[in-house]
């Protein structure tokens, strides 16, 4: 393996940065869409009227997880053609799963006696949701969002295959031309994006989490 330093630095400093904005777009839009769909859906699946559907829907979600990311991207391409559209739709669907799963798991894990006490004190179902269930679920839901974010950063690479651009363009070029330097340059930016996004979401989580859950974060996660 002979490493072409010129090619690498040209890729790292000139070619790859041009794809950052495209790639972020491929991450952030699906992520926001996924949160907007999956969280309400997850909440709905824990409401008494829909709870009995919960298991069935979750097993559909679990089965969805077995479809390889390449296939999810590919499946929308015949329907929507080339470009951003199918890539964003596919990535959104891919990001839905961890968020919905964690929302359902987190709300289901709220201790029954806490909910019983809240109801016994005269809280309405809405008050129980917003004052008890959701605050207690923040760490687990946010862990799902982080998972989805990291997953989306790397899966978005595949968008390049269906004309969705992004950092995948430079990585696939590296594969096709057997140029290790291009792959490395693109991957470095992917890693950076994943780290930055993860940190940003952790900060957000810190703002949303009630004080005591921070202290024993580990314990709570394990319990959930």
């Amino acid at each position: 393996m002979n490493f072409d330093m010129d090619l690498f630095s040209q890729a790292l400093l000139q070619r790859a940065p041009g794809h950052i904005a495209e790639h972020l777009q491929l991450v952030i839009i699906p992520l926001v869409l996924a949160i907007l769909i999956a969280m309400p859906a997850g909440i709905l699946l824990t409401r008494p009227a829909y709870r009995h559907h919960g298991r069935r829907v979750m097993s559909v979600f679990n089965a969805g997880q077995t479809i390889p990311p390449l296939a999810v991207i590919a499946l929308f391409f015949p329907l929507l053609g080339l470009g951003y559209g199918p890539a964003i739709l596919a990535l959104t669907i891919y990001a839905l799963l961890p968020i919905a799963r964690n929302t359902v798991a987190a709300i289901s894990a709220v201790p029954a006696e806490v909910k019983d006490a809240a109801r016994g004190m005269g809280m309405t179902p809405k008050e129980i949701l917003f004052r008890v269930e959701l605050p207690l679920s923040v760490p687990t839901i946010m862990s799902g969002v982080k998972t989805a974010a990291i997953l989306t950063v790397s899966t978005a690479v595949l968008a390049a295959l269906v004309g969705g651009k992004g950092m995948g363009a430079i990585i696939f070029a590296g594969i096709n031309f057997f140029r290790f330097e291009l792959v490395l340059a693109g991957t470095i930016y992917i890693g950076l994006m994943a780290i930055v996004l993860e940190r940003a979401l952790s900060l957000l989580e810190g703002l949303l989490t009630p004080a005591h859950l921070k202290n024993r974060h580990g314990a709570h996660r394990r319990a959930a």
Binding site: T124, P210, H212
Partner: peptide, 21 residues
């Protein structure tokens, strides 16, 4: 029901304090 429950104190074995408050 919620209005009724607000006029009745309720204590259970597991206490059921809200852990985030």
């Amino acid at each position: 029901p919620p209005a009724l429950r607000r006029t009745i104190g309720y204590v259970i074995q597991q206490v059921g304090l809200l852990p985030h408050r």
